[in-house]
Amino acid sequence: MRDNLKQKRDWILLGIILLIAILLLSIFPDRKGPVINTLWDYFIEMMLILPAVMIILGLFAVWVSKETVVKYLGKTSGLKGIILAIILGALPTGPLYIAFPIAVTLLKKGAKISNIIVFLSAWACIKIPQEMVELQFLGPQFMLLRLSLTIIFVIIMAVFIEKMIEWSENRVATMAS
């Protein structure tokens, strides 16, 4: 239902953009050549990888269930937990809003806050298919550097948020007693 609505909206957006493009190109016919060349180049480049990326996505969606993620992430902690959180978050298993309920389940099961933050952030921005497309379009140097910086900073952020939340909870606890 929600997907249908989004689909419709996307097609309408495409229609509007297409109309603008046709209008612009009929006013400036000399730009037609370069614009269509660029369109074609990017289209080919997308089509070379997008179907494959989608297949990898589909395979993971079916083979790695939410239960698997919860099972592995609920118990581990420390460095091992953080690494596992990155790997499980990076698996191509769906959009971010699917990760929230998983995170809640994990919290209830007593997983560390830092692990949850790492997991959510990895889910949002270290997805394997994303990295593949980034590699294709922006090159190995850009992709690898951004990936390693992201991992480092996400871990720092996760530990920081955990300390902040623990600190504020302790303060509430001492004020109550």
Partner: peptide, 14 residues
């Protein structure tokens, strides 16, 4: 549809 939207935007941009 979003693929086409982005590609057209890129084409116009460049």
């Amino acid at each position: 549809p979003m693929v086409f939207v982005i590609i057209i935007i890129i084409g116009l941009l460049l």
